[in-house]
Design a protein around this nucleic acid. Structure first.
Lengths: 89, 89
DNA sequence: AACAATGCTACAAAAAATGAAGCAATTCTT
DNA sequence: AAGAATTGCTTCATTTTTTGTAGCATTGTT
């Protein structure tokens, strides 16, 4: 899985996630949403933009490809919730 | 997404991925499949085992929860392939 | 002009990953 | 049974990443 290298980096999935459903966030808003220091966020944004997942147009937002990625992440979200519940018991 | 913290670490998704479809790998086989140095692999395995995703029984394999995770990763795989193709053009 | 918000850059410290080496405990082979 | 191979790691030094804080330059507002 080639995307693993991109998405496996600290905060990458989180950044994409915070931009789900058409959200448009400023650098600083993304920073606090994704809980990343500015340097890391900037690095991640550079990678995600290079990968055509994120665009910087009047704030940061997902490209169509990024939206597709969100679609592909829903099952993972569901698994994540089950997993969190199971651990919390 | 709570699972992001677990799966967002270097090589975590990759390790799970290499154990897909019932594969049972030795530590060293996993090491070369996932392309991770032993120290990192060992750390990751510790986290994945603690999370109940991987089990160490006659080699490393996924738990039922781990298999569920693989199920949730298929859409991501498909996205990954499309993405790789698009970039490759 | 003063002020707030924005997108970042700079920097030092801490944490994590890498790669190579190697060791102790099995498990073959002969 | 002795030697060789394989396995699951551990160790260590080096490099790479991440973190957190500070702050600067630009743009928009009052």
């Amino acid at each position: 899985m080639a995307a693993m290298d991109l998405l496996g980096r600290r905060g990458a999935l989180r950044v994409v996630w915070e931009l789900r459903e058409g959200r448009v966030l400023t650098f600083r808003a993304l920073q606090s949403a994704a809980e990343l220091p500015p340097g890391t966020l900037n690095t991640r944004l550079g990678e995600l933009r290079a990968a055509g997942v994120v665009a910087a147009e009047e704030g940061y937002r997902l490209t169509p490809r990024g939206s597709d990625l969100i679609g592909a992440l829903w099952p993972l979200l569901r698994w994540s919730e089950d997993w969190a519940n199971a651990l919390g018991n």
